[in-house]
Simulated scan of single mutants.
Amino acid sequence: MIESPPRPPASADPVPVAQLPGLATRIRLRAVRMVAMHGLGYLGQALSSAEGFAVLYGRYYRPGTDRLVVSPGHYIIAAFAAAAERGLLDDDDLRTYGHNGSRLEAIGTERSPAVDLTCGSLGQGLSAAVGFALADRIQGRSDARALAMISDGELEEGQLWEAAMFADHHRLGNLAVLLDANNSQVDGPVAEIATVEPIADKWRSFGWDARDVDGHDAAALDDAVAHAVATDRPAVVIARTSTRHGLACLPDGVDGHFIKLPPELAEAATAELEALDA
């Protein structure tokens, strides 16, 4: 029998909105250091979603009260980095990221700490978040929220839209989704594999509240998430992002889905982010 990961303790007070960009920079810096140990890895996902995880961990996710689902398992690197910034993981944990036997695996599993669930196969996380939201309602946990980070490539999965339809049918106003729309998946740009646009209109057609924002504008993102958790309908925030954001030193044409980070580039990336965080 697989045991669920222990629920993390409550973190500190919410981060002021003005400090969210700095938190996002530190999330990127931690992710660079985690990937640098291996010379390659899922850095692009951390670069695109850093502001999103800064907003979620910094201001809305209340461990022990809310449920946080990270649907794409390879995004777990950003969740680990954000959790460390909020005191839910320590530096010793992060130094084992991706190593054999570590509880911080490169792709999240049912044992991953600092989240309530992460999924391997894409497209399943929204179903899990819907289950959490409905269970909290049935159990009378009126203060609890189900929060989910999903990706735009997952919109090609039919299961996701079944979950969206179910959430609207049950009017799950305690469910909020942050969608990292970075136009990147393993086979290439999402728009070239199977276009998912217009994203917001599709969600609205399923009865959801939908807002489309610049995912690297932390203040705009925070405003949209604040609305999402306050509305009485299931809500999604579409965050338009880039898998290169925050690192000017990355070579042109780098594969944002799985980035090679040799020592020289890792040193340059670290120096660039440390200068921003100074």
Rank of each mutant, 00 (worst) to 15 (best):
A164T: 08
I150W: 13
A129C: 07
V225T: 06
A164V: 08
V229N: 02
T270L: 10
C119I: 09
H170L: 08
E272H: 10
S71G: 15
L261P: 02
G140S: 05
G246D: 02
A218M: 04
Y61N: 00
V236F: 00
L247Q: 02
E162H: 02
G256F: 00
S48E: 12
V213N: 14
E105K: 14
D187T: 11
S121Y: 03
E192V: 01
S127Q: 11
R171K: 12
G87S: 09
L104V: 07
F166P: 02
G153W: 15
K260M: 12
V196Q: 12
A146L: 09
S11R: 12
A78F: 06
L134W: 12
C119P: 03
A275F: 02
A24D: 00
S71P: 08
A210V: 06
I138W: 09
G215S: 08
M149T: 05
L155N: 11
G246H: 04
S102K: 06
P263T: 02
T241F: 00
L88T: 02
M149Q: 07
L247V: 06
Q185H: 10
S205F: 03
A79N: 14
A278W: 03
P14G: 03
A146Q: 07
I27R: 00
A194V: 13
R62F: 01
T96E: 09
E272M: 06
K260Q: 13
L20Y: 00
D93N: 08
P189Y: 14
L126I: 04
L20V: 01
S112W: 01
A235N: 11
G44N: 00
H38N: 01
G140A: 13
A164S: 11
S151E: 14
V229T: 06
M37V: 04
P189T: 07
R103M: 12
R33K: 06
I199L: 11
L43C: 08
P72Y: 01
A239K: 06
T118A: 12
A219S: 15
V130K: 04
F258L: 15
N182S: 10
Q19P: 04
R211N: 05
R62W: 05
A79C: 12
A10M: 01
V55K: 01
A148T: 07
R171C: 01
T96G: 11
L265E: 05
L160N: 14
A50V: 07
N174P: 06
G120P: 10
T96K: 11
P113E: 15
I193H: 10
A31N: 00
P5F: 12
G215M: 14
L56S: 01
A146E: 10
A79L: 09
